[in-house]
């Protein structure tokens, strides 16, 4: 049985990855999980300089979901390369480094430095809902500054991805936001710009209020909704995007079980990411790998790639 899938130049031993921001830099899970069994690890997003992140409270639980507004807290590129990457490199599975920046120049700086350090793939996080991009955009660039993130604007997405494409040979995985009218428009822009892979979806912008205090439950007021609550929305978007583009898609959004993962793959995802589920069950991703194997065996599927997009209509 073949579980290998190709994402750009990466060959994953199985289609199960862990979503950025939900698995730290893998070290946090090493006591609990055979990390090397994962198809790939997508790291917590890094930025050029360290970021403090948002003030607490940063989390709120909602019905079958969770709101978060971490604000990309991280120690910056140099500390990542010095303290996190050496251990990640030794794990024995593919490492995809999630990167975020407020300018094309910084995106390129991150990609080039990671490439020289031996990284093979980056996830370009154009879609964090919890940081403001507007402040750092110049007045000339009104189109971008109105949008909250690059991935809310097809032209801005195209600009960043094509700039990166010109400067790096890294496998470029572009992470898209669901907080748009038509996600396929953004997906096509990323594909035209030279993205190798698309990853969708990031969290849905949401809000929760404590009725006793009338305060928002998270200090940032709004946050990104993840967890099983968003799964049907994410499956629909993966379905739409996978039919619109030719490049592979990583499906992410509320996957808790192998059945959830299979839904995404049948909808068109070549690989999937497990996110919030790892908080509830640290072994969720590993159990999903086992579940996929079992499904393939029971359904006499010799190559899991044969399942991708095979929805019966």
């Amino acid at each position: 049985m073949n579980l290998h899938v190709k994402l750009g130049k990466l060959k994953l031993k199985n289609p199960v990855t862990v979503a950025s921001g939900t698995f730290g830099y893998a070290k946090e899970f090493e006591d609990l999980v055979s990390v090397k069994s994962l198809g790939a690890i997508i790291t917590k997003t890094i930025t050029v300089n360290p970021r403090l992140g948002n003030p607490p409270p940063r989390l709120a639980e909602t019905a079958s979901g969770m709101l978060n507004a971490i604000g990309l807290q991280n120690e910056g590129l140099d500390n990542f390369l010095k303290f996190k990457y050496p251990a990640l490199k030794k794990i024995g599975t593919e490492v995809i480094v999630s990167i975020s920046a407020q300018t094309k120049k910084d995106f390129i700086f991150l990609a080039q430095n990671l490439e020289s350090a031996g990284v093979k793939a980056v996830e370009v996080n154009l879609s964090c809902p919890n940081i403001s991009y507007a402040a750092n955009n110049s007045k000339k660039n009104q189109q971008i500054s109105r949008a909250k993130s690059f991935a809310q604007d097809a032209k801005a997405t195209y600009d960043v991805v094509s700039a990166l494409r010109k400067k790096t040979k890294l496998t470029l995985i572009v992470k898209l936001t669901p907080n748009v009218t038509d996600i396929t428009e953004i997906a096509l822009a990323a594909e035209r710009a030279g993205a190798d892979v698309l990853s969708l979806v990031n969290t849905f912008l949401g809000m929760a209020i404590d009725v006793e205090t009338r305060l928002p439950k998270i200090a940032n007021i709004t946050g990104g909704l993840s967890g099983p609550a968003i799964k049907p929305l994410a499956v629909r978007m993966v379905y739409d995007v996978a039919r619109a583009v030719k490049i592979p898609v990583i499906g992410v959004g509320g996957i808790m079980s192998a059945e959830d993962a299979l839904e995404f793959m049948i909808a068109g995802a070549r690989a999937i990411s497990v996110g919030t589920a790892s908080f509830v069950n640290p072994k969720a991703a590993i159990e999903i790998i086992e579940g996929l194997k079992l499904y393939c065996k029971e359904n006499k599927i010799k190559d899991i790639n044969k399942l991708v997009g095979k929805i019966s209509l």
Binding site: T22, G24, K44, P56, L59, N68, I70, S278, F279, P282
Partner: peptide, 17 residues
Amino acid sequence: DEMMGCGIGACLGCVIK
């Protein structure tokens, strides 16, 4: 005491200044 996500230091949800 604070509400937590992962409980193992990965999600950065339960921070204090």
